[in-house]
Design a protein around this nucleic acid. Structure first.
Length: 373
RNA sequence: GCUGGAAUCGUCUAGUGGCAAUGACAAGAGACUGUAAAUCUCUCGCCUUCGGGCUUCGUAGGUUCGAGUCCUACUUCCAGCA
């Protein structure tokens, strides 16, 4: 069983530590999105230096390339990419949602590979097998997201997620027993709560997931902060307190992280910070700015004087503007260092402020300044 | 000097008688949430009440209902010959 210590509770919020075989995660924490075993534009050394505690890779993408066998040959995901710390994998469920040409049946999902067009099938069993082979510390159950906003569709997706969770749990036990026999490190399974924007479905999903007694929970299918507080209250009041909760995919907006942590989520992951960075949209305490805008051409001040990332400590906005306008690789690297550091730091600060009992003041001050415009 | 060829939005370019005129780049702005994203979208002659109006393809004339496109001269550039 995954060890999770909670040292402080403030309402639904908690400060804790997830103990994995490859190290601890002090929560709340932002997990870097390393979809293809890399956080785009960043080295693992840079990730460590900017304060990241853990990364999350994607099973679908790694199955396609380089293939699960190669990662096994390397000694698992962490060794393969030289991340000497805790790792997560997402199940591939999100790709049902994001890729065109997917065929969903009770058995599983048929994808058309976006690389060579080959038909591939992923099932709860095959996702579990792939995740065990990839060897991250924490795995996500294979779930079903839907683009539909209709209640009936959301209910069906949730029910399928539950049926698949049953199969994930069975397969996971089998694989865990095999690993245990071989004395290889333990790996853990998070069930994923679905239910969309419907709180009765969310509550039902949380109850169902909890009944399966997984090691932790992912909360999936969340796309905006609208209604998130209420939804998280519904879900996290049902989920057992003593297990970690990961809010899947949210964290592009600082608001997501404040609401997520306040209402009981422990970890977050999001591609937003690095994608924003590559596209020139950079976080400051006064909101995001587009560094490519002409007004920064002659601005020789740092992005923000209150940031101590490598980018802000050493470079100015005019230089970053120049790097973006000339499409230099360094632009994306520095911007990614900054944005990832910014978001990791926001969540770290939430942890600190919860411990100091000053969370609410911090949140109000931060958000009113950040969303001032 | 002669003989050819060329001149179109900031740049390169499409266009060989029929709607301010193609594409790329540059420029300006926007979007992005478990990454098919180093991506995508919009604007890009001037004015506009968004219906449209006005002025444009080196310069000046001409032919034509109509010219970036054909003709004449000039200017500039390129190539070859003197």
């Amino acid at each position: 069983m995954l060890k999770f210590d909670i040292e402080k509770r403030v309402g639904l919020a908690r400060v804790g530590t997830i103990h994995t075989p490859h190290g601890d995660i002090k929560t709340p924490a932002f997990i870097g999105a390393a979809t293809r075993a890399t956080v785009k534009a960043l080295t693992m050394e840079q990730m460590r230096a900017l304060g990241s505690q853990s990364i999350l890779a994607n099973t679908y993408h790694l199955v396609l390339r380089p293939g699960v066998e190669l990662i096994q040959e390397a000694g698992g995901l962490a060794k393969f990419c030289s991340w000497y710390g805790p790792t997560f994998t997402d199940s591939g469920g999100f790709q049902i949602f994001s890729l065109p040409n997917v065929k969903i049946t009770e058995h599983g999902v048929k994808f058309k590979s976006h690389i060579d067009g080959a038909m591939l099938e992923m099932t709860p069993e095959s996702s579990m097998q792939a995740q065990w082979a990839i060897g991250a510390d924490i795995h996500m159950a294979f779930d079903h997201l839907t683009k539909s906003e209709k209640y009936e569709d959301m209910k069906l997706a949730m029910e399928r997620t539950h049926a698949w969770l049953d199969r994930c749990v069975v397969e996971n036990s089998k694989l865990a027993a095999e690993a245990h026999a071989k004395k290889s490190p333990e790996q853990y399974l998070y069930a994923i709560v679905q239910g969309g924007t419907f709180n009765d479905l969310r509550a039902e999903s949380a109850r169902y997931c909890a009944s399966k007694k997984p090691d932790g929970f992912g909360i999936g299918g969340v796309f905006t902060a609208d209604g998130m507080a209420e939804m998280l209250q519904t879900v996290n009041n049902v989920l057992p307190e003593n297990k970690p909760r990961h809010l899947l995919g949210m964290g592009q907006e600082p608001l997501d992280l404040f609401v997520g942590a306040e209402y009981g989520c422990d970890t977050f992951d999001c591609v937003g910070p690095t994608r924003m960075a590559r596209n020139g949209s950079l976080y400051t305490l006064d909101g995001r700015i587009n560094i490519k805008n002409a007004k920064y051409k002659h601005d020789f001040t740092p992005l923000t004087s209150e940031c101590n990332c490598e980018c802000c400590k050493n470079y100015n906005k005019a230089y970053l503007h120049h790097l973006f306008k000339t499409d230099e690789i360094t632009a994306k690297i520095l911007a990614s260092i900054h944005n990832e550091h910014f978001i990791v730091s926001v969540v770290d600060a939430i942890r600190t402020e919860l411990l100091k009992d000053s969370f609410v003041d911090y949140r109000n001050t931060f958000l009113s300044r950040y969303y001032h415009n």
